[in-house]
Amino acid sequence: MELKANMAGNVWKITVNQGDKVESGQDVVILESMKMEIPIAAEEAGTVAELKVNEGDFVNEGDVIAVID
C-alpha cells in the first residue's frame, strides 16, 4: 500500500525505519509546511517495505512517501 503526502511541504521527521512493523494509525513521517506539522500515519498495519523520502526533502501533494506491505 502506498502512503501519500496530503499536502506540499518538507519532510520534517521520519519516525520509522525500513523493515519496521507498523500498526494502523501509527505515524510514519511528519511533514512540515507553513508552521504546520502534519503527521502521516499508516492506514493499515504492515511492514515498511520502502521509504521513498529523506528528512528535509520537499514533497508535493500526492507524492508517495512510503510503501507499506
Binding site: N6, M7, A8, G9, S33, M34, M36, E61
Partner: peptide
C-alpha cells in the same frame, strides 16, 4: 489563508 478550504492543509 493559503490553504485548502476543506482539509485546511497549506497550499504554497
Amino acid at each position: 489563508y493559503a490553504e485548502d478550504p476543506v482539509t485546511f492543509f497549506p497550499s504554497p
